[in-house]
Simulated scan of single mutants.
Amino acid sequence: MDLKEHIRAVPDFPKPGILFYDISTLLMHAEAWQETVRRLTDEVAPYKPDMLVGIESRGFLTAAPLALEMGIGFFMVRKKGKLPGETLEYSYGLEYGSDTIEMQADAVTPGQRVIVLDDLLATGGTMDASIQLLRRAGAEVAAAACIIELTFLEGRSKVDVPVHTLVSYDS
């Protein structure tokens, strides 16, 4: 199955000049979504993770069903102020400004093997920040996986773990 046939390209979203790859149409097609989860499972299972981590917000849609399929736990990395309880945070630079992500302080125990998931790898900044946050918490980050990769943005070069993607766009 060609998963690209189920991903909608939306021009000029969220601003002019940006071509947004929307997984909503993939999620709406049960067979394509099941195939996506199967393929992601095939990519990440060899790492034998203890836990999967989803990056806000479409990473939750990717990681949660995959964790269910694999019979392991899942937790979230979110923007600052979105999680209850004690949190750990990591601030990182963006092209114009900075951002801060958080995870719950008790989400991972030192030495746990985790894999970070998102729907799309673009510039790699948020993926790298998530990996650094998880390491600060004591996790062993084994790999990262996404449904889509925008290869022309070279985000993979910012991530220092193996990265697995199912679909790539070169422009």
Rank of each mutant, 00 (worst) to 15 (best):
L19W: 02
L27R: 15
P84S: 12
E43T: 08
L134M: 09
D42N: 12
G138E: 02
R38L: 07
G97S: 06
R38Q: 12
H29S: 09
L134N: 05
I18K: 07
E35M: 13
D128P: 00
G155I: 10
R136F: 03
V167L: 11
R38G: 02
V37R: 13
P16Q: 12
T151E: 09
R135I: 01
I148M: 12
A9N: 15
L61G: 14
E95M: 07
T41H: 13
P16N: 09
M127S: 03
K82G: 01
V44M: 10
Y90H: 14
K158W: 06
A63G: 13
D128T: 13
L134C: 07
A67R: 12
L52E: 01
D160V: 06
G71T: 12
L61R: 08
F60H: 01
S130E: 08
M1Y: 09
G59C: 10
A67N: 04
L153Y: 08
A45C: 04
A64S: 13
E95A: 14
L83T: 11
L134H: 03
V163G: 04
D2W: 11
A105M: 05
Y169T: 00
L26C: 03
L166S: 09
Y47E: 06
E89T: 14
K4E: 14
T165R: 00
E56K: 10
K158N: 04
R39I: 03
E95G: 10
I147P: 12
